[in-house]
Design a protein around this nucleic acid. Sequence first.
DNA 1: TATGAATGAGAGTTCATTCAT
DNA 2: CATGAATGAACTCTCATTCAT
Lengths: 194, 194, 194, 194
Amino acid sequence: MRVKKQEKYDAILEAAFHIIEEKGFENTSISDIVKRANVAQGTFYLYFKSKNDLVPAIAEELLTITNDMLTDYVRDSMSIDEKLKKMIDVTFENTKKYKAIIALCYSGQAYGHSFGKWEEMYTPYYNWMEKHLLQAKEQNEIAQDTKIEFSVRIIINTIEQTADRMYLTNSITGVDSHEDLKKELFNFIKRALV
Amino acid sequence: MRVKKQEKYDAILEAAFHIIEEKGFENTSISDIVKRANVAQGTFYLYFKSKNDLVPAIAEELLTITNDMLTDYVRDSMSIDEKLKKMIDVTFENTKKYKAIIALCYSGQAYGHSFGKWEEMYTPYYNWMEKHLLQAKEQNEIAQDTKIEFSVRIIINTIEQTADRMYLTNSITGVDSHEDLKKELFNFIKRALV
Amino acid sequence: MRVKKQEKYDAILEAAFHIIEEKGFENTSISDIVKRANVAQGTFYLYFKSKNDLVPAIAEELLTITNDMLTDYVRDSMSIDEKLKKMIDVTFENTKKYKAIIALCYSGQAYGHSFGKWEEMYTPYYNWMEKHLLQAKEQNEIAQDTKIEFSVRIIINTIEQTADRMYLTNSITGVDSHEDLKKELFNFIKRALV
Amino acid sequence: MRVKKQEKYDAILEAAFHIIEEKGFENTSISDIVKRANVAQGTFYLYFKSKNDLVPAIAEELLTITNDMLTDYVRDSMSIDEKLKKMIDVTFENTKKYKAIIALCYSGQAYGHSFGKWEEMYTPYYNWMEKHLLQAKEQNEIAQDTKIEFSVRIIINTIEQTADRMYLTNSITGVDSHEDLKKELFNFIKRALV
DNA sequence: TATGAATGAGAGTTCATTCAT
DNA sequence: CATGAATGAACTCTCATTCAT
């Protein structure tokens, strides 16, 4: 029984996630979602209070995916340089894949206007990176006066935004390839840290 | 006759800009817009092919506003530090004021999926900043190996994204005030440049 | 232009009136109404803010019909007895014909909970009868201590309710026919007045 | 087992009665009812064939309440005047309390279109009053030519309708208070009887 | 007997777009 | 050029009812 219940919820969330990714939130109808999830129209409302109620669940899903990937890619034993590069890789990869979802999460629709939730959701990500920056500081890989708590946020923002803009504009003039852009982004951040 | 045409066009664009800013794109109806613009429902379609056709025009409007402000705030005679600080001020101010418009511009609705337009629109902004970075390089205010063309983009992205996130999350934990955050952002960018 | 506008409004109101009469308010859909009125779904909302917005218009329609009939049936030159009998006839006839409409008007849906409107709507009816009762008083047809303003309301209520109940229950046991019931009702009221 | 069955039935009926009283029949969902009755959704359909099947049961409940109150208030030893006044009191009190239920009972939804049931349900009420009117006739409190069977119906109707209209319109112009209206109503009926 | 998750038809309403004037 | 009444498809959401357990 418990399993079946989760099944429907998961099916709906999965369907919503992918259709929204394809068509954007506003252009996705509940009808689209339930068709893909193979459940009845009304079933949607057993699991979500409204269409908007999807957004937090989807945002959480995206962060889970990101965290899983970071855990997979980044090892404690790596140097801070390697770690930063992996972070950039993961962020670019996900931004490319989930452009529309990210737009939705940032649209404000996510949590009405109580954005505490947003900060809360990002907390594990911030903590994860804080840990690695602290480790880098101890090992003298970065400047001792680096304000960790703050840098964490700026760095994550910078990477996300650069990736965002890149996939939005498709190409940034004068930069030959995505790989070059990622390299330059790494240098930029690195310089700000040492 | 030419003037009258422009009048209606301007009225519609102005109305659209402000209502979308207030209510978001999807929650703004043509009916809302024409009411504010004091024109008939059908008149809208004399100037715009469709509702989506508004988006590029609105995006351009936003950039015009931004450019005007930068021109007002930033003087050639300033140091690069002062210039960066002014840029941060203007970006933060506009991001706060035009949150919804910015969200719309980044939503991908802007140009279907031909984002060349986006890059084109940003060009004057990029050029404007490129000029000032070059000047700073000549005067040895920043590192001689700075890749100007590229830095321009990263810096603009970083400022915009930080502002965006700040107004989205309302407060970034551990940072006392907006002014502190702006100072730290400045330091971050500065370190990456010298 | 003016005429056409009225045409659609009238068509919708007429359709609503008759379908609601047949099926009741809650079982009548906007779709039913516009189909009968031969207009598009959206056209309904050009003339009525919502489904509930129909109710006052329909209530007014019913009173107009009633007033027209009373004016047709009742002459000033008649005796109060004849007038009362005609009133009973008209009320019974309309109650039979417009059962569901009457139920709707009394349901409270009519004006949310500001029933001032209801009293206001009945005013012409009350006034009409007041005139005739006053005339009857002057001509000594009814008791001189009759409290006109109040009697008007009780009499109208009593007639309406008796008609209502009769058509609701279809037959009142022990009374042979509608005509007998109407005669008895007349006697009851007459006795209360003289 | 029998008891348990009754328990659930009673719980559902009680819940339905009170929620319908609060929100009206159409705005009351089975889901609302079962939640208040603390039974499962499906259980409702073990005791009632459909939502409409509730109506006769609820109507009966209302009459039971009314009869109980009349039995409580009215003593055989009272004069017909006192009895009438008590009847008016009880009717006004219940009409105020159970406005929505009464509206439902009169809506025709009660028994589709076989209203025999309605007459049947009122029978005990009619009988109860008949008994008292007969007693009054014997004691020469009212006119000897009063047609009891018929008067019973008109009187009950008149009281109910006046109460109904009063609570619907909230105030009847020119009548200072509910107590005054009740007094006038009593006089009206009394005059028709003697 | 009792459950409650699942159903799906259908409700009211909105709105981008058209077109006769 | 300008109008605005008219359109009708599409939307989100509700809810009486069913049925496997």
